[in-house]
């Protein structure tokens, strides 16, 4: 059972605004998602806790420097940034 309050709490934690109209359908969807996850859990019961998807562990890389990206590339998605930074503007 998923309550509207729980949906609002999760939305709040995720910084997502949910309108009153959406709340009803989201609550319904979330209940279905959880039911689906329960089904998956039931099927996968018996799997060892530490088995990854492939059953592998310790996929590690060596501590060797790889050149970073040019800053223009890094800041491309924020319109080139400001003075080399990612700007986070206050809402007006």
């Amino acid at each position: 059972m998923v309550t509207k309050e729980e949906i609002l709490k999760i939305a709040n934690l995720s910084k997502i605004y949910v309108s009153e109209d959406e709340l009803e359908s989201l609550t319904h969807d979330m209940a279905q998602i959880i039911a689906f996850a329960d089904t998956v859990n039931a099927v996968s019961a018996g799997t060892q806790e530490f088995e990854g998807i492939s059953g592998r562990s310790n996929i590690l890389r060596e501590d060797e420097v790889i050149p970073s990206y040019p800053r223009e590339e890094i800041l491309k998605n924020v319109g080139g940034g400001e003075d080399g930074y990612f700007p986070v503007k206050k809402k007006n």
């Binding site: 970073s68 990206y69 800053r71 890094i74 800041l75 003075d83 080399g84 930074y85 990612f86």
Partner: peptide, 17 residues
């Protein structure tokens, strides 16, 4: 990731996707 951890570089120059 393989970006360097060197301290004091210009902002956002030790970054990758």
């Amino acid at each position: 990731c393989g970006c360097t951890t060197a301290f004091g570089a210009k902002p956002n120059t030790n970054c990758c996707p």
